[in-house]
Simulated assay, not measured.
Amino acid sequence: MTEQTVIIYLDDSGVLDSNHPVKHFVYAGYIFISKDEKDYAKRRYISTIKNIRRSSGRVDELKAAKISIKSKRKLYQVMKPFHSIAAHVWTDKIYESILSNNLSKHRYKDYVVKMLVKKSLKNLIDKELIKSDDDINIILNVDEQPTSSDGFYGLRESIYEELKFGITNWDYGSVRPPLFTAEVKVSVHYFVSEHNYLGQSADIIANRIWVSYCHDDISLRQRDKHFLLTLP
């Protein structure tokens, strides 16, 4: 049996805080269904960065918050051949008890990431791009940030259990079945975007989707090969 490999890069945009005037929070990035596809995307992105630096004279990291709209558009367009994913959170619909506690807030972010990973993988299964009955190795790369410590599980363990065993909620009598029936491997890596080009690409799309909600402009987030999850 051939082992499938799925590689994901995610970054966030916005503020998960009830007191913030903008009520939108986003995780977004790209999901690759092979190492070769990931490497091809990286080469394309680096080539575009080099072109922008040559024309602008910049040598620093090209973050969405610090570059021109034209440059952001180029960095967004070069990734159009690849599958993108996003989770949008309406922060004014989250319980205040979650947002008022930093540890609970971090745990909720982990939950958003977990559900985005699961639903994105389910979307790939539905499109017959990956198989639910083959071994799978999932490599998740997330922009470096404080991690949850007030839950029973870390992010990696939580994702693994959701995908391999599903979740039974005894309080509500609900069951979420497992997504995969074969062997599941999950690894989680936290990157510093300055040293990670595909992490930078996640920053660009996360910012664009966040802006699309801030300006209520759906055209900014309409793209082929895109999966969107809305929470809560």
Rank of each mutant, 00 (worst) to 15 (best):
K225M: 05
D150A: 11
F32H: 13
N51I: 12
S148M: 11
P81Y: 10
I136S: 07
V186Q: 12
K23W: 03
Q200D: 06
K93Y: 10
G154E: 04
V113Y: 02
V112K: 06
L179S: 14
D133T: 09
E128T: 08
R73I: 03
F191I: 06
L75M: 09
L229M: 15
K122E: 15
K35L: 08
A206Q: 00
N123V: 00
F32G: 12
I67E: 07
Y111C: 01
N51M: 13
C214K: 14
T168R: 13
I125V: 14
E144M: 11
Y9W: 07
Y197T: 02
H189Y: 15
L229Y: 13
S187T: 12
Y76A: 04
L10V: 05
D150N: 15
V26K: 02
K93S: 12
M115W: 08
F180P: 06
Y9H: 05
F82A: 00
L140S: 10
D39P: 01
R208Y: 01
K109M: 14
K93C: 10
K63E: 06
N102W: 08
A206K: 00
F227G: 04
K72Q: 14
Y108W: 12
S174L: 12
V26E: 03
G154C: 06
R221E: 06
Y30E: 06
I209S: 02
L198G: 01
D135N: 15
N137M: 04
V117L: 11
V211I: 07
